[in-house]
Structures are given as structure tokens and as C-alpha cells.
Design a protein around this nucleic acid. Structure first.
Lengths: 233, 233
DNA sequence: GCCATGTTTCGGCCGTGGCCGAAATGTCTG
DNA sequence: CAGACATTTCGGCCACGGCCGAAACATGGC
């Protein structure tokens, strides 16, 4: 079985703790330098270099040179889906330690998931859009209603122009909350817009998202998120 | 990062050729004995036993004892999704040999994908259901229309009764044809029904599905598949 | 030109884990 | 209860691959 061998090759590549940590870090959606990835993985630069060479060789990540830095990012949404799927299985498995630290709490509140928003903020947004009838969710994907399209246009998001084949609105299972949130082009556009508006901001060295002062009020106004949206569901 | 470590553990488990072959074989949806899996993996029984113990320990597969046989099957649809996602990435990657043998051709024509139908037959079915307005596909999922519900009921499929949380109708990207086909509860029910009707039959030692004489005409009658549905899309 | 910084290449050490042969356990069959 | 078959346990061999130190390459700043 050739197929078994090739999927084994890909899985083996992800199956090393150092590389898995790098890929997890890249799930933040940003391109990171080799040095940053070394830090995330907890190994030295030379070890990291070897790992990255192999990941790039297999086209799981792509390289962008910029001056003396080398930026790496995930090669495609498909790769992100593999990590996603693995996270789901890993979080379900038998008592694999689940220590919840303070930094874990920040991640559970709001974080990037490749190119969209996950965590309780992601869930609050999808709930809001669904209640207001702007999107209709059905089994793993959603449909943007005409009212939703107008609503998003008002909010500064235009989705019509892109000729991409990428799904407009799919969902992605949240590993911390076990409920789906918005992914696809819509999810990506939403994250981009919130970052542009500075309603949320990336945090260095982490996938966690910080919600700004302006964000608190803006999200409440636009999406009707109440004071306690961040309480455990 | 604890999460990086746990996903690495799962990926490492899949990342061995022998285990990957076993899991691929189990993607056929049937439970297989340890011996059959040994054959698929191309290693001896004792080696297989060790592998299966580890897979079961991590809850990627589950064991069902039956007399002197021990049947193993995938532990959950989530595990199947990981294999799916890996197949997609593996098939896209850099020139990892793609020898297309005769048996590969049978797989491309029609095969099981965990619990539903993939290959060109799967695509033909989804196309048919979509054209007739029985399902509406939108980005990674589908909606069963009222007409579709009636149509399926006439065909002997009742989906209403199950209280499962599993998505009714999601899609699954086909690694051979690169287009989505029907998965979810609907996809599973469709496969079950076609097997019951003996319109398709499983083939021993392979995930390929054979289309019976009755199937040829039945599929043409019910789903309007013409003579040449199996030509390359 | 020189030095600092980021990254890769080389060489060698060492542990994890896959593999099989032999033998033990379990289960159905006569 | 013996004998076939399915599967697991044990023991030991061996290799692949991760890790780091040292050193070589780049690139940018001065």
C-alpha cells in the first residue's frame, strides 16, 4: 500500500515533539522565524534547522527569506486541518495530562486557529451571527444569508471579490470548548477585520488574542456580546 | 506546550508505516482481525500484536473479542478524520511516487471511506443528489431538503430517528479525485442501504467496492447515473 | 573592512523503538 | 484431552533519527 506509506511519512514528520510544537506555533497563522520556532520547540537552533529543512522538504511549511531572517509558515489550509484533527483526537484521548495554567486560560478565552478565531470569543461570535440570522450553520459548514452579507459589508468585510476555491464558511472544532466555530474565508476575514480595527491584538510568543478596550465595547455594540460572554459555556 | 506533545504522541503513533497501513485498512469501515491487519501491514503477527496494543492503548482503535479472533476497528469518526486529512496532504505533497496499478483503478472507481462511499461512484452520487435538488452543498457540508428527505425515505433510508450528535451531512475530500463526496450520517446510511440492496459489495482484502449487475441498473434508475458515470471527471 | 546576529552544515553520541524467533496463553474442534 | 489455529509475551539484535558542540555561511550595521 503506497498510500499507507505516504501518510506514515507525513504523520512521522508531525510525530516528533519538537516539530509538533513548531507546527502548533505556526497554527497561530503568522510566519515565524527559525529562531522563534526553536524557542517554541525548546531545542537549539541547529536542531531546529534540521527539522525545518525536513518540514519544508515535505512541503508542510513554506519558506520566505527576508534579510537575514527566514520566515516559515504552514504551507496550506490542508496542513492546518491535519493539526486541527490531531488536536481533537489528542484532547479526547485517555488521561493525557491536562494541566490548566493561567496562560492556558488566556488561550481558552480567545486565540487564533491558523487564520481565524477560536476559544470562547470564537464561539460567542458564531452564536451571535447565528442568532441574528446572518449565518445558518448546518453540520460542519454554514451559509451566509443575504442579510449576513449586508451586515458584514457594513462592518467592512467584502467576501464577494475573491475567486478562491476555498470554502467561504466552514466550521472548525474547537479543542478547548468542543464546539464548532467559524473558519473558512469568512472566519479568516473576520479575524483580519478585528485585527485591523484593533479590537483584538496578537500577543507575542503565543496564539492567545488580547481583547482591547475598544474591542470590548465594539464587540458588545456590533455583535451584542454581553459582559459575561467569556464565562464557561 | 503540552498540546504540542500530545498531538505529537498521536501523530507518532500513526507515523509508523506498519501502523499507518493498519489504520488505512481500517478506513474501510469494517472491523478486522489482528491477523488480517498483520497481512495488510506486511509484518509478522507478533509485531502486529505490539502495534495494536499501542494503538488500543491510545484509543485510536477499539477491540472486540469474538471467540479466538480479536476484531479491531477505528475508535471514532474523529480518528477517521485525521487519516482523511493526512491522505489529502500526502497526496498533494512533492512527487511521492504515484504508481497507478490495476487495483488502484478499482479503488478510484468506488471504495469505502470509513463508513461512506468514495471514488467516482461517490462523486456521481453527490452530483446526482445535488442536481435533483435533494441536497444542497455549501462549503464542506450539505443540507438535506424536504424533497430529499422524502426521496431517501422512499429509497428506504430513514435518518430522523437517530439522536446522535454526529453531523447529518458533511463532506469528505476525496484523495483520488480531489472533490468532496458525501460523508456524515447521510453518507453512512447511503452506503449501508446500497450494501443491503446488494447494489454494491465489499471486496475481500481491499477497500474497493464492486458494483453488482443489479447495482448498475438500480443506480441508473434511481440516481440517473448514465453508462459513463465512471469515466474520469 | 570588522563584528554581531541569524541560520545552516558537519560529526559523533546515544536512546527509543521496530523487527523477528521462540515459546507461552487462550480458544475452538474432534 | 490432544491438536490446530489465533494471538500475545519475552528476549535480543540493530538501525534510524534526535540531540548538541563546533564551526562554516550568510546578512546587516558601522
Amino acid at each position: 500500500m503506497a498510500s499507507g506509506n505516504t501518510i506514515a511519512a507525513v504523520a512521522a514528520l508531525i510525530g516528533d515533539p519538537a516539530r509538533a510544537n513548531m507546527l502548533s506555533a505556526l497554527m497561530g497563522g503568522q510566519a515565524l522565524t527559525a529562531g522563534e520556532l526553536a524557542h517554541h520547540a525548546g531545542v537549539t537552533a541547529q536542531t531546529t534547522s534540521g527539522h525545518l529543512a525536513r518540514l519544508a522538504d515535505a512541503e508542510l511549511v513554506v519558506l520566505e527569506k527576508q534579510g537575514r531572517h527566514r520566515y516559515y509558515r504552514l504551507a496550506s489550509p490542508e496542513v492546518a486541518r491535519v493539526i486541527e484533527a490531531l488536536s481533537v483526537v489528542a484532547s479526547e484521548g485517555p488521561k493525557r495530562h491536562h494541566p490548566v495554567g493561567p496562560r492556558d486560560e488566556a488561550l481558552r478565552r480567545a486565540r487564533t486557529c491558523y487564520d481565524h478565531i477560536a476559544g470562547r470569543l470564537g464561539l460567542a461570535l458564531v452564536d451571535s451571527l447565528q442568532e441574528s440570522g446572518h449565518v445558518v450553520l448546518a453540520d460542519g459548514a454554514g451559509i451566509l444569508t443575504p442579510a449576513g452579507t449586508r451586515f458584514l459589508a457594513d462592518f467592512g468585510i467584502d467576501l464577494g471579490s475573491s475567486p478562491s476555491k476555498r470554502p467561504l464558511c466552514r466550521t472548525c472544532l474547537d479543542w478547548s470548548e468542543r464546539r464548532p466555530h467559524l473558519a473558512g474565508r469568512l472566519g479568516a476575514a473576520l479575524l483580519t477585520r478585528l485585527l485591523d480595527l484593533k479590537w483584538v491584538a496578537r500577543t507575542p510568543d503565543s496564539r492567545a488574542l488580547r481583547i482591547t478596550k475598544a474591542g470590548e465595547s465594539g464587540l458588545a455594540r456590533t455583535f451584542g456580546l454581553s459582559q459575561d460572554w467569556h464565562s464557561r459555556s
